[in-house]
Amino acid sequence: MTTTSRQRISTRTLVLVGLAVSLVLAGIISFYASGHPDGLEFVAHKLGFADSAGSHVSDGSPVAGYGVQGVHNARLSGGLAGVLGVVLVGAVMYALTRLLRRRSSH
């Protein structure tokens, strides 16, 4: 199997397409995600230890629970929170990889 002869897309294009897909998933598709408790929450309820969960120190965050405080449209609120998350995660990870590569080149 030769891969060198195949028509390839640039890294830049690949990352931009991936970023666009992630923004659509977090900003739009996330609205349709299942609202049921996840595996751990479900098991915690079933076996009776869900109550031991404390309140979260970040509950006062303007985007706590994947919704923007003050935005009442659920679709918009969740979508904006998702887009903000994508931007935050991308920025932090990008900064971290830059830092690691600069240090390793010395």
Binding site: V15, V21, S22, L23, G85, V89, T97, R98, R101
Partner: peptide, 13 residues
């Protein structure tokens, strides 16, 4: 390196 950023973003989304 750019892929690492994309992977983190994709996992979050």
């Amino acid at each position: 390196a750019p892929l690492a950023g994309l992977v983190a973003v994709f996992v979050f989304a």
